[in-house]
Amino acid sequence: MQPSLKGRREGSPWVGLWAVFFKEMADHLSSTRMRILEVLILFSAVGAVYAGAQTLRQTVSEDPFLLLRVFTAAQDPLPSFVAFLSFFLPLAAIALGFDAINGEYNRNTLSRVLAQPIYRDALLWGKFLAGLATLALILLALFLLVVGLSLIFLGVPPDGEEVGRALLFLLATLAYAGVWLGIALVCSVLFRSAATSALAAIAVWLFFALFWGIIAQLLAQAMAPYDPFDPESELRQAEALLAFSRVSPNTLYAEAIQALLNPGVRSLGPVLISQLQGALLGSPLPLGQSLLLAWPQLTGLIALTLLLFALAYVLFQRREVRA
């Protein structure tokens, strides 16, 4: 061995990545979980279009963003399409990822697979990318169903900007799903039992979906108490609340799609009257500006996904092969 190579490991960490990727992808697509998800997809698409169409038929005013309304319109008792997605996707991501690594342990296949000429990197990356690709496939199917059905029901073709916004919305949704896939992956490395791992991942999801809002409020009140004689303290509290609630990926996702799907949104935080001087209220922002608005949230979601994957990676590299 050359001295310059000493201390470095040989070869590429990507060897075998595609073999793992395609095997995992095939596993996902042929699994019973996928059948269940497919049924959910169909129901949700039909529900979303129905709700959207009902709402839109009742509005008479002119709306240049008809397709985006289909995504966001809710019709009692049906939730809007995006509300449904932010609820359904974490579960789908957890379902695809919760037994990624501990499943290999439990089937006694890990040592056999790692005895092949590949690095652990390839196994983890392959599993993560396969999960992400499956989620992308689900999302794309859902998206095309909704767009196609709304074309039939509404008869109005979307224009270029609408399609652009819808595709960015798709990207944000994939990043959001990636965060939950990352959480599921970390759980699958941490917990040896698949059931524990699934429960832990769902507990994290419940925590952010139900409790984090309350906790963020309490924290904001404690950190920036409201003083009735100081009007600025109210603003400080609102900003603190926003900062805390943005720890949750759910908030980040909700804000990102709010900016992307609703061209009228100009700010995701509190706005002062002075800042609105000269603004034409209700006039839509161009796509570039909306993207700029959602940029921190988008990068935040992607960064969170990478961070979680890195955590799973470090944990997995340190794990002993033997149980």
């Binding site: 061995m1 000493k6 201390g7 470095r8 490991r9 040989e10 070869g11 060897v15 005895a115 092949q116 000429p117 590949i118 690095y119």
Partner: peptide
């Protein structure tokens, strides 16, 4: 060396 050259070894 299994630590540094695992791919050639495991082949």
């Amino acid at each position: 060396d299994p630590v540094r050259e695992p791919l050639s070894l495991k082949k």
